[in-house]
């Protein structure tokens, strides 16, 4: 019998990537992805999140949703570090097309080229797309 505070070690560790391609608020995808990542973080896998296409808008600084009556979930991206989700990749081309730069983002990320991100996707064992 194990006590509830005794932690079980992780089983097989797999490389999981959550691919985020949707803007926040207009659809539920961004929030759903974030919730799944937070829940799955308990399973101690090798988790990364990629932000490309309109997904880069999820990380835009200065979101203020008071006017639209929806919850502003952008502060939650800053909690990911505490959940040991530290690999956040942002596609450089997606930022550039939108006139954004790394300074516009609300968490520290690694900006990389589409080519490099494609390589990284190839290395994953599980890819979850939102």
């Amino acid at each position: 019998m194990s006590e509830p505070w005794e932690e079980e070690g992780p089983g097989t560790v797999k490389k999981f990537m959550y691919v985020n391609r949707k803007a926040p608020y207009g659809t539920i995808y961004a929030l759903e992805s974030l919730e799944v990542v937070l829940i799955a973080a308990a399973f101690e896998q090798d988790v990364s999140m990629a932000f490309l296409d309109d997904g880069v808008y999820q990380l835009k600084k200065g979101q203020d949703t008071k006017g639209i009556g929806q919850k502003n979930f952008s502060p939650t991206y800053r909690a990911l570090e505490g959940y040991d989700v530290e690999k956040l990749y942002v596609e450089a081309e997606s930022l550039a097309e939108r006139g954004l730069s790394e300074d516009d983002l609300l968490v520290p990320v690694e900006v990389m080229s589409r080519e490099a991100l494609a390589e990284l996707m190839n290395e994953q064992e599980v890819i979850l797309s939102f």
Binding site: A41, F73, P75, T76, A79, Y83
Partner: peptide, 10 residues
């Protein structure tokens, strides 16, 4: 600060 309730581990 984060707009979520943390998991127990966190």
């Amino acid at each position: 600060e984060y707009q979520i309730a943390p998991a127990v581990r966190v």
